[in-house]
Design a protein around this nucleic acid. Structure first.
Length: 217
DNA sequence: CCACCGATCGCCT
DNA sequence: GGCGATCGGTGGC
């Protein structure tokens, strides 16, 4: 049986889930307190038939074992000396996942900036940068279900993107079969999207749909 | 502002 | 022994 939380990460194409994650709140309850922010950029990896996936052609090893786990599990791995964070999607044994690539800091943004020795977009405008901003420097959380992990997506709150841009994924081997597939999604104009040019940034509401006026305020 | 390149390191063959 | 689902510094325009 799946919980409601797990159901969010299955039963729809991973590309759809990747877009639905934009504007959700990523939370890490760690030794520095509660850190986190809005997810602004994601990439979908579609498993054994996706040449860019860690599970391409059924590749499976102790290193990538978590990708084969339950929907909503954490796949936390290391690449070129940096840590990156994926959310496992689809049923057990179906190694699909979503890489979180950009985060707009919301919870203790000053601690996240200090963790990166940076300010502004460089704090979390990349998959390894945002993991470092959260203060995560090990694979300890790899394989854990988010529902009971200090690192999780809060599905109860959401900023709605005014527009979503779709592109090819970043850092692919250009000769790969799926290197040009449209599987990267981001909140159009948000400054915390990786590689965003200053001119293209939306400085008014960072690409979020403007909330309805609240007269109680 | 953009393009290039070297650092870096765990994991796989 | 080789290779990334990367990053940041540097130098040119």
């Amino acid at each position: 049986m799946l919980t409601d939380y797990q159901r969010f990460f299955t039963a729809r194409p991973t590309t759809t889930i990747a877009q639905d994650l934009l504007g959700r709140l990523l939370i890490y309850d760690g030794p520095q307190g509660r850190l986190g922010g809005w997810i602004v950029e994601t990439e979908a990896y579609l498993g054994v038939n996706d040449s860019a996936s860690h599970a391409a052609n059924g590749r499976r090893s102790n290193y990538s074992e978590s990708l084969y786990g339950h929907p909503g599990d954490i796949y936390l791995y290391q690449i070129r000396g940096h840590f990156c964070f994926d959310i496992v999607t689809q049923a057990v044994g179906e190694p699909q996942g979503i890489l979180i690539r950009g985060l707009e800091p919301v919870l203790h943004p000053e601690i996240m900036a200090a963790n990166r020795h940076q300010s502004g977009p460089n704090v979390s405008n990349g998959p390894a940068k945002l993991v470092a901003a959260l203060g995560i420097h090990s694979r300890a959380l790899d394989g854990q279900p988010m529902a009971t992990s200090p690192l999780c997506v809060d599905l109860a709150q959401r900023q709605v993107p005014a527009a979503i841009t779709t592109t090819a994924r970043i850092g692919m081997n250009p000769t790969g079969k799926d290197s040009a597939a449209p599987r990267r999604f981001y909140v159009t104009g948000n400054p915390y999207v990786s590689g965003m040019k200053k001119r293209a940034m939306d400085l008014t509401h960072h690409g979020w749909q403007v909330a309805a006026k609240n007269d109680d305020a």
